[in-house]
Nucleic acid binder design. Structure first.
Lengths: 208, 208
DNA sequence: CGATTCTTTGAAAACAGTCAATCTGTGTGG
DNA sequence: CCACACAGATTGACTGTTTTCAAAGAATCG
């Protein structure tokens, strides 16, 4: 294959990402065709290979990120160098470092692809522009924020009240799909439990 | 004192709460005098005695709550009956069960006064009405939501990455004011650590 | 003051973390 | 296709931390 043949292929792949994103938008709010066009026009598509980063600690976060396909992990490093996973972001969900993006402050987070991943990106300016002109888009963003808040509250309750065993159970029932795609030691990091402990818990579960 | 003398006294106390609330509003956003009046007109004032509840598990949450003075604790009960404290709400801050209030679903939370407390209350309908008519009020509410989200993320990181000792330290530096007003066993419950462990940690700290 | 709530302490048991070694599966390059 | 490297998972032994239970002491409220 000659190199200039790549161009239309890449274009098609990017178009597919937007199509997927449009389907998501239509399923989650009542946008007019005009609005859908406007939203997609404001976005850019990007592909990430496994292990590539879209945000690294210290940078100022540049995008609101929609995952079309693939899987991201968002992690934070403690002073001692240990990595703790704040969340996973699979296809059809959003992520960003909201604080860094909105306040233009250095991020404490690393966002990295766990699989080859397709993204739809909005700069802060693009997102603000869309919020101004498309109330439905603003409403969708607001819904995402409060969903994230509710989920965070639930997770805090889990963190302070569940035993390690209950945390493990809660994870596999809340995210059964993720469980098969994420290495166990990352689940452990997400739950705040050592990998060995989680391995032993799982082993004990299998017997029952 | 004859009973009918109480009436103006109560009225004055309630007026003082609104004055306090107005001061808060003016300090945190640019409201016109007209808007301030409208906001206060949409609210009701209430006093809570220590140990009284403004929300109990199973009820549908009725209010957005601003604390003029005093202190609330928001807690959730695990199936085994143990209480875990989700947050404390001191003067000049807000609380509610957002999920229950907006979705009109039964609450999992108990909100109780730890001190005699003065509240300014907004029903769901009143809040929505104000959001419609006063964009600045909407913006303030949005700011509160994202602040709560950012704080929740920080707390999750603390939950999964800090040792008990670090959690204790983090609490007294983040909420030095609260620390003197809240019994230690409630701080323990908030942090997800047993009261005995927290007592021992504090004891060890004092020696240094 | 008496009752209640809160805190502390001790001792034992349960639990989780660490370290080191081994095992497993996957995928890459020769 | 095989061998090797690598990432991930498991296991054992040990250590350290945390919980639990029980009891006693301190503080606070009515």
């Amino acid at each position: 294959m000659r190199s200039y043949d790549l161009i239309p292929i890449i274009k098609n792949a990017l178009l597919a990402m937007f199509e997927h994103f449009e389907t998501y938008l239509q399923a989650n709010a009542d946008f007019t065709k005009e609005e859908l066009k406007q939203i997609c026009a404001a976005a850019t598509a990007r592909k990430l290979r496994r292990r590539q980063f879209i945000l690294q600690e210290g940078e100022i976060c540049r995008f609101k990120i929609f995952v079309s396909s693939g899987l991201l992990k968002t992690a934070r490093i403690k002073e001692d160098g240990t990595e703790y996973i704040m969340r996973f972001t699979a296809e059809n969900t959003w992520t960003t470092d909201r604080e860094s993006l909105e306040n233009q402050t250095p991020s404490k987070l690393n966002i990295e692809a766990l699989e080859d991943t397709e993204l739809v990106l909005f700069t802060r300016a693009a997102a603000h522009e869309l919020w101004q002109t498309i109330p439905t888009f603003r409403a969708l963003s607001d819904k995402l924020i409060v969903n994230h808040l509710d989920a965070s509250q639930e997770r805090i309750f889990m963190n302070i009240s569940y035993t390690s065993e209950e945390k493990y159970h809660s994870f596999i029932t809340t995210y059964p799909d993720l469980f098969n795609r994420v290495p166990l030691h990352m689940v452990a990091s997400y739950l705040g439990v050592s990998r060995e402990t989680l391995s032993r818990i799982r082993h004990a579960q299998l017997k029952q």
